[in-house]
Amino acid sequence: MHAYANPTRFLAIARPLTPWLLGLGIALLLVGAWAGLALVPGDYKQGETARILYVHVPSAWLGMGGWTALAVAGLVQLVWRHPLAGIAARAIAVPGMVFTALCLATGSIWGKPTWGTWWEWDGRMTSMLVLLFLYAGFVALTMGDEGQRQGGTLPRGAAVYALVGAVNIPIINRSVVWWNSLHQGPSITLRGSSIDGALLWPLGLTLLGFSLLFGAIVLMRMRRIIADNRVAARLRRMADEES
């Protein structure tokens, strides 16, 4: 693990990996979207509106997975002080927030024709909205701070914030089990799926496609932060030599 914490070694892997993740992700998304929108039948009860799940479920997964990664990065930075952990956390925050917002938006669009309401304050929706606010708080905490220009490390407060915010992730996951909610219970559990196989397989494609796309975006953002740091370091050196 230490070997990859070095930005130079990281770049040697990230550079060739990015186009592969990006290309494969977009290809899977195109196939998955075509299959989900055109090929498979609608749901027996909801009809065509059910198709929004091919975007909604991957968005929820990436919003929650993004914060989990943010918390792990926060822990790695606090304990091991790896230079890449802070860079990774900074790179993940905005895409994670975008997917969380996408999850809320698609859920709302689905909720109106299905439930008869755009928004209700039930456990699942409220905890997901809290996740969006947590992301916004993290972005605000790490925007334009000193660490951004000094190797990308997080302010200690932001790393602790990422860890504490992770408490919300199991709450989102369990909200429909612990509390009576308007949102339905989990469709896909360890015991199997209550989404019929005929409707399920495009979800696998879009889930993987969005995940690879997310990975590519994070790698690109990490590379950008590293490049920015190098520029800043070089400018500092040049300024020192001149004076």
Partner: peptide, 16 residues
Amino acid sequence: RILAKHDERYMPPQMG
């Protein structure tokens, strides 16, 4: 006011 609650099952119409 009445809202419909959807359950966790999704299936094609012929299995409905």
